[in-house]
């Protein structure tokens, strides 16, 4: 598996990261080197092995359905670049 310029631009766009042409140029071989490294795993025969979901042999614990959190609006909004009337303000996004 390998990526080309178009794929790198698409990944960057999906991740909302701006990349310049020069950066794309540099990133294509870098990403391909990483992919090549990971692809070494393909040499191992895993046909009889269940995919692993977690690295510890444990399952999810279930929490009780009680309200233990919230009512911390000031803390939630503390780092917002624009907080108005108790809302987060963001550049207008509308269809």
């Amino acid at each position: 598996m390998s990526v080309d310029h178009a794929t790198v631009r698409k990944i960057a766009s999906l991740a909302r990261i701006a990349v310049s042409d020069a950066e794309v140029e540099a990133m294509v071989p870098e990403l391909n080197a990483i992919l090549g490294f990971v692809e070494q795993l393909g040499e191992v025969d895993t046909s009889a092995i269940q995919p692993m979901t977690a690295v510890i042999p444990n399952t999810l614990r279930l929490r009780e359905d009680v309200v233990t959190d919230g009512n911390i609006r000031d803390a939630v909004l503390a780092n917002a670049p624009a907080a108005e009337h108790g809302f987060f303000g963001v550049p207008k996004v509308i269809e």
Partner: peptide, 19 residues
Amino acid sequence: FSGAATAFGAEQNSQVSLV
């Protein structure tokens, strides 16, 4: 996935945890 309340019509951002 968090302990914040779910009631409808609460004041904005009052039922929000850091999660």
